[in-house]
Every structure is written in structure tokens, then in C-alpha cells.
Design a protein around this nucleic acid. Sequence first.
DNA 1: CAGATCACTGAACGAACGTTTAGCATATTG
DNA 2: CAATATGCTAAACGTTCGTTCAGTGATCTG
Lengths: 211, 211
Amino acid sequence: MRSAPEDLTARSRIRDAAIELFGRDGFSATTVRSIAKASNTSPALLLHHFVSKDGLRTHCDGYVVETIRDLKREGVISASQTELIAQLSAIPELQPLVWYLRRALQDGGPAAAEFFDQLVADAVIYMEEGVATGRLRPTRDPKMRALMLTTMAFGPILLGEHIGRHLGTDGYDADAQRRALPVMLEIFTDGVFADRDLIDSLQAQLKEDQS
Amino acid sequence: MRSAPEDLTARSRIRDAAIELFGRDGFSATTVRSIAKASNTSPALLLHHFVSKDGLRTHCDGYVVETIRDLKREGVISASQTELIAQLSAIPELQPLVWYLRRALQDGGPAAAEFFDQLVADAVIYMEEGVATGRLRPTRDPKMRALMLTTMAFGPILLGEHIGRHLGTDGYDADAQRRALPVMLEIFTDGVFADRDLIDSLQAQLKEDQS
DNA sequence: CAGATCACTGAACGAACGTTTAGCATATTG
DNA sequence: CAATATGCTAAACGTTCGTTCAGTGATCTG
């Protein structure tokens, strides 16, 4: 993933090939033999290093989570969920990582959970700072807002195929993100609802429920 | 899906079981034998009716798309993408349909594409009406806004597992949606960004590019 | 330099997969 | 009433799956 395959140890070549194939085709559609072939090794060596196919998945999960954490610490990528994936996508070598995360977030499992929770926790802090400096509006429920904004930020990423079909791009790539930016800023600066009836009536009702 | 399994023909029982299992476990993790068992039939009968496992998938795709279209026409569910899934989730018998769509949207395929495109097209119309009546803010790019709002609306649905973990709910169910509603209204009424620097500078730049 | 450890392989195993086949009832049709 | 079609099944086929095994050559170790 970082240099030419022939330079790396067989163990890391297997891991990189697995991350790419698991992410692209899914876990159960990826065979041990296809990973061995893609990494120029043998099925037996794969199991020699990782015990079983499930063991390899667990190893990949841990590796991906750790890599993301390292990239954050090194400042290569920021902790903001809206920018994180964009930044990852901008580095071609890390593209398989994005695919893998995409697949893992949907299929579940501990790696995806840890990744997602870290993202939400970061968003809470990031937004607290934004509110303090006056860049972001305050909210009555910071944790809920961070949670919902994080999940919504993943919508375009998870459905990148359909965005690509509409915009003629390769998924939700840099070009698509650039073209979507104006309406995204529109939405998140001025909102979408023009009148305040909806939110006012809800807040009145919530106050009534409290008393 | 509509009444007790023993009342239906074997053909429809197979189809319903397939929709449930494909949606829950994915296509390649679901076996012909497991579908046959869940529908109280035999693998041979499944292939007698649907030629192959792929044929069954194609049939399910068509059935799901057609069912959604019928429900829209009958007025059981609305065409608004933000409410559609919530309305589908509210009808327990249709829950497998939501799972199936979720899986199909991620895996791709013609059924998911048609479903998604229909959703975006409906959103464009729905929002045009909203702007005309003054309920929604106007936008410079109605199609792009409809596209992005539709994809973002799917974020919480696709990542329901993680929302459930944070809120203690069963995914993005009715309870989770109710609790998220205040911040969602907050976000889509007042926005998130407090100052207009971001959007102003972008618009200035866009104007500059035009000239 | 003997012995243990390590990276690695080809061949094979049992299980499970999607699919085929031959055949059995029960209707429908000429 | 014979003939055809339909709904359905048990058994088996060939393939591919994840995994095991026996063994080879290189490298490290005492």
C-alpha cells in the first residue's frame, strides 16, 4: 500500500491485498485463494500467518483502525468527520482504506464501531471549539448534533456510486465534492426550512411535556 | 410478508424469505439451502421457480421496486425521501423491505439505482412545491440540493447500527428518530455555521471564475 | 556444525456450495 | 380416459470453499 508489492514482506502483502479485496467485494465474496493470488503468495501461507480467514479479517480491522489513529496523530488528516474522508480520498494509496471502512461500517464489527465512536467523540470536541469561537451555532444537544451530522456526512460516501451516476463522476470523489460544496454550504449556513413554524411548535410542545 | 407463511404459495414464500435473508446477511452470505429452509421448501423448488440464485435476486429486485411504487401510488407512503423510510419502518411487515433496500443501495445493481433515482426525482418536485409555497428556502441548484439531501437522509439509515449503540435504540428506529428530531429541525432551520464568511467567500470566488 | 526455528509450498481433505436429474403425485386438457 | 402440464422432492453431481498436512530450503542459535 505504501510501495511496490515486491518490496514488502509476504505478510504485509497479504494484509494489503485483503484490505483491498474485502473492501471492494465484501468479506464473504472474497476467497482465501483470491487474496493469495493478488498478493503473489499461496493460500497455505496466508493461513500460516493469520490462522484462519476470520483471523485475517480481525488483523485487518485492527490495522485499519491503528493506521487511521496514526494518521490523525501525525497530523496528516484532521479529526473532523466532514473532512476526514475527503482527506483520505485525496491520498491515492489510502483509497483501499476508505473502501474497507465503508464496507466495515455497514457490516458492523468492533473495528467499525471503534472508528465511528472515535469520529463522533472528535466531532463533539471539534464543534465545542467552533461554538466557543463563534464559528458554529450553539445547540441544545451537542452530542446528538455530533451524532447526526456524522451519520449524515457518511451518506454521500456510502452512496457514492449513485452520486457518481448523477454527476458523471467516479463516486463521491474530489470533483463531486467540489461541485457539491456550494449547496452544502447553503444548507449548513442558512438551513432548508424557510419558516420557523416547525421548530417553534416542536419546542413549545417539548416545554409543555416538561411541565 | 402480508399474512401467515402457510397461506401463501411456495413461490411467494421463497421470495419473501429471500428478501429477508438477502437484506439481513447479504447476497453471497445467503445460501440457496437457507432460503429453502426458511420458506419450508427445497433447494430444487427454488431453482424450479427462479432458474438460479441470480435469477431469484433479479426477481426480488423487481418485486421490491414494484412494491414501493405501488405503496406510493396507493398513498400508503409519501414520496418525500426524509419520511419514506420512516413510514416504511413504521409498518412492521415492510421491515424486511427496508433491510433489502439498505443492502441493495450499498451493493449496487439496477433495482437500487432505479429506487434511488426515483427518490431524487421525487425530492426535486417535492422541494419545488415547498419553495413555491414559501416553506422551503430557494436554492441556486435544486437538483444538486435534492441529490445531497437524499444521500444525507440515508446516512442514519445505513448506519443505524451505530446510532442504536449510541442511543440505546434498535437502530434508527421510531424512538431514535423522535429523539433526533429536535436537532434535525435545528440543523435544517438555522443551519450549523454561525458566520457567513465561508459561503460569502465561496460565492465571491464563483462569480470571479465566471467572469 | 548439529539442531531448532522460520517462511513457504503443493497436494489433498472434508464440507458446503449452486445446480442437475429422475421421478412422484395432482391437477388440467384433448 | 389417456396425455400433458404443474408443483414439488430426494438424491446426487461437479466445483469451490476454508483448511490441513507433510515436507523443503533458508536462517538463526548454542
